[in-house]
Design a protein around this nucleic acid. Sequence first.
DNA 1: AGGTCTGTCTGTAACGTTACAGATAGCTTG
DNA 2: CAAGCTATCTGTAACGTTACAGACAGACCT
Lengths: 358, 358
Amino acid sequence: MAERVGVAMNDESVTNGGRAKARNGDSRPTLKTIAFMTGLGVTTVSRALKDAPEIGEETRRRVQLVARQVGYRPNRAGVRLRTGKTNVISLVLDTEEQIMGFVSDIIYGVSEALAPTPYHLIVTPYSRLNDPMEPIRYVVETASADGIIISRTERDDPRVRYLMERGFPFATHGRTDMGVVHPFHDFDNHAFALEAVRKLAELGRRRLALLAPPSTLAYHYHTVNGFSDGLIETGATAIPFNAVSIDGSINQIRTRTAELMRRKNRPDGIVSSAGAATLAVVGGIEDAGLSVGRDIDVVSKQSTPLLHLFRPALLVVNEDFRLAGRELARSVLGWIDGADPATLQSLSVPQGVKGVGE
Amino acid sequence: MAERVGVAMNDESVTNGGRAKARNGDSRPTLKTIAFMTGLGVTTVSRALKDAPEIGEETRRRVQLVARQVGYRPNRAGVRLRTGKTNVISLVLDTEEQIMGFVSDIIYGVSEALAPTPYHLIVTPYSRLNDPMEPIRYVVETASADGIIISRTERDDPRVRYLMERGFPFATHGRTDMGVVHPFHDFDNHAFALEAVRKLAELGRRRLALLAPPSTLAYHYHTVNGFSDGLIETGATAIPFNAVSIDGSINQIRTRTAELMRRKNRPDGIVSSAGAATLAVVGGIEDAGLSVGRDIDVVSKQSTPLLHLFRPALLVVNEDFRLAGRELARSVLGWIDGADPATLQSLSVPQGVKGVGE
DNA sequence: AGGTCTGTCTGTAACGTTACAGATAGCTTG
DNA sequence: CAAGCTATCTGTAACGTTACAGACAGACCT
């Protein structure tokens, strides 16, 4: 048996005057409810709640008090229909993405940044095997979000071009190389690869291989360039990894690594751009009868501090994806709020190569 | 320079008659656009598009053709405001969740199931350190979704109680033990633990420890019961794990395991309920100077087939979280569509304990 | 012929919000 | 004292959709 709840109201069906028309207790309060309770017009209530200038101080306080009392929350559909503002950020994710939970870290990071705002996070999936433009077009055409966060950014990314043309707010995880200014957050992969090579050189390693991101992605180039710069600086030699990237399957990476390690001129140092891939690399090394830390050293990025449990001799550089999520969210929100995109770019600098326990 | 697009329309500001009022080419088409183009009323168009019965066959086809041509997509805000239907499913996630990407797998699974529907997925984060009811209340009170997916289900879960009372559609990841019928998807953790014990017994292991889920969660009990049943069946002995669950930190689990392994009556078999935790367990075992496969065997659940790369001797049982996501989505959608909740429960059966390469 | 039914189609109102264009009252100003 | 200002507050209309209550024609009965 339901208790009688709420304030008694004259639910007159006045169609034109409208002042007294209001819902009774059961459904959630609207502006009309508060208007009725305070004896004000809905317009006044609406403005009072958003601190508009032409509202009397006392009225404002009264309205806000009542609104708090009845637990008023603006109806998103109403706002959205009227203003076109969705209060939604769309995170576009590739469902082919492999293993290891950096995706959840990004999501949590974005959520964290969105929590104190009225924005909701909606996940828009796609498969990179199909058309990567499709989800972007969908969001823009149906205006289902106020901003978009993109990952797997390419050097010349059609999604970025499309969104720039339309002036639709977005931020990319990873920089592009298109000569256009847009918000992004990126990890400094050049610095990562450079420091990795330095570390390996320091350990006396001279023949280095790089397991890079797929060449379609922007940060492939940063990584490769950092690696090259490191080779030049240290005088070490590059041993090419045979047609495989961190996007390869576990088994593929493992096999290719084993092949590589059985060659005469095998590497004595490897730089790996992803934690999960590194597990496969180590598997391949050991398949070839060799041992990490003795025959070879491996420097790997990792997003979760687990690799040392695997092989204590591994060297790691941490990449914080939760931070990335936060920064990306801050960037899109900034753009939506009208900030200059040039000020919404951030780079996360690696904190150095670490051994076990460091 | 923008091309001239779209059909020329008389944008008369007829306020009452209304038939001819329509937008010109730039913004997205609405029912009014199609009504104008076909010469029909908006109501007719609306009904024709949803295959309502009282629309003539030819009219229906004509409307649908035009709609397709102009790329009509219903305005979500309009629908939502009018009908109260949000076409949104909320996935409520704990941001304290540790490591390893099973969260992304669930998200991808849910996305997959939602893709062919008009539903969007919104991620509603919370911290289990604060009030777990808060996100649920928020979604229900603001009617910001048509259905909710809950994880970290407890045996007697207040969220389930709350939602049942209000008849709000939801599905839980994990069963409850509350005597109420509600949709869920669960992995058969009883079977997992039972099979794990059997396998260990088969290998001659007699003193078994269990690293269980935290006792707040429903599947803690399934796991513990399966483990117990296995002990009874095989006559093996339980060695209690000292106050630690898979929710513990990596270091905590590692330390506790090492302590355990240094005791006189140390276990010669361990069952672990989570892949990430298992890495720590193995770390602890080796800290104590012992070796997996020789001094002890470990059976672990894993969501991503990576553990064998870590220690080939590990035994694993796979849990498919993408499948879980799909099933959870199907369950909520089913409830929303009015299906009997009793038919929306599913259990995923472990596919057996596997060694390397199996 | 008059009535009723059926198959199609129709306009109006409403969901909750905000932009806009006033309205009112009290004050100041010339 | 009229005119103008300022500080507050107001109602109406519109965003795009669907529920509802018809309206109209033609067919079918009696």
